[in-house]
């Protein structure tokens, strides 16, 4: 009833019975999802940080007598790989590398992409056209080719992965944020601010940014997940993190060599770790989107 009263007071004369585009998910389920995601991420980050203290073995220590131990082996909970290295320890240490690489790269890509989008959104048509056309080209160009070139120039390693991720992610971030910014720019509050004497920096940072920052955070969060996946594939390909450093992607490719002998666990476990983290970040991003949406907050009577 309160809702009807509010509308009767005279909002916009649109079809009042407009169906919501998406059936709203129940709030409680969303909250559970976010909680699970936060717990997963927190545990993994903590484990990665504390790797030197909790990893049962040195991740690089080979043990020729204990190769290919299966899951649940005595002393090696998740078994050992082709060199007899403890998989659990390698997973813990590998998480360190993988998470760090994905965090750094996603953060950099988010900042660069957002900055580009803001510039494009508030400069003339020509500048915006130039930036967005370049982004279009980058967007669809196979990232792997860029990664190969980087690997040639800088030698394979974590740095190549980070650069490639930035290159891969910047177009996405820019496009998403640009769409937001352009939408904001079309709204009259920008003109209002201008007629109320606000200069460009003030409009950008005090008016527009509060309206897009939540989308940036949401997108950046989801990005981390996708980029962990991508970086693991790059490392698996051999142009990322180099042996013997433990890294989830590297572990997958090492597992690939032994899969033909019927041992899937060496490759399976790091892949599952990648999937779990990626999903957690996706859920967190989705959950944050709902938290940030002001229209979901209840209107006061």
């Amino acid at each position: 009833m309160a809702l009807l009263e509010r509308e009767a007071d005279g909002a916009t004369p649109v079809r009042p019975a407009q169906a919501p585009r998406r059936r709203p998910r129940s709030r409680r389920r969303r909250n559970t999802q976010v909680t699970i995601a936060v717990v997963i991420i927190a545990v993994l980050v903590l484990v990665a940080l504390l790797a030197p203290w909790i990893a049962p073995y040195d991740p690089l220590q080979a043990d020729g007598a204990n190769k290919y131990l299966p899951l649940g082996s005595d002393g090696h909970l998740l078994g050992t790989d082709d060199q007899g290295r403890d998989i659990l320890s390698r997973l813990i240490w590998g998480g360190r590398t993988s998470l760090l690489v994905a965090f750094i790269a996603s953060f950099a890509a988010t900042v660069i992409g957002s900055a580009l989008a803001l510039v494009a959104g508030f400069s003339g048509d020509k500048m915006a056209g130039l930036i967005m056309r370049t982004i279009d080209v980058m967007f669809a160009f196979p990232v792997i080719i860029i990664a190969v070139v980087f690997a040639l120039v800088f030698d394979p390693g974590a740095f190549v992965v980070i650069l490639s991720i930035i290159f891969a992610a910047v177009p996405y971030v820019t496009r998403v944020v640009f769409t937001e910014v352009k939408q904001q720019r079309g709204r009259e509050y920008i003109e209002a601010a201008e007629s109320l004497g606000a200069g460009l920096p003030s409009i950008l940072f005090r008016e527009v940014l509060p309206n897009v920052v939540s989308q940036i955070v949401v997108y950046g969060t989801g990005l981390v997940g996708g980029m962990i996946v991508f970086s693991s594939s790059l490392s698996a390909l051999g142009i990322g993190v180099q042996p013997p450093t433990a890294d989830w992607g590297r572990m997958i490719s090492e597992g690939a060599k032994v899969i033909i002998s019927g041992n899937i666990y060496v490759a399976l476990l790091p892949g599952l770790a990648v999937l779990l983290v990626a999903l957690a970040f996706n859920w967190l991003g989705d959950g944050l989107r709902d938290v940030f949406d002001p229209h979901q907050r209840k209107a006061r009577p």
């Binding site: 909002a11 916009t12 009259e188 509050y189 003109e191 209002a192 509060p210």
Partner: peptide, 26 residues
């Protein structure tokens, strides 16, 4: 200026009091 669509001419993320205060200070 008073705009056609007040929904769009007010910044949705800023309290309305602050939106009046800013130009006064400016």
């Amino acid at each position: 200026f008073v705009f056609q669509d007040a929904t769009s001419s007010l910044n949705p993320r800023i309290r309305v009091g602050e939106q009046i205060v800013r130009p006064l200070l400016r």
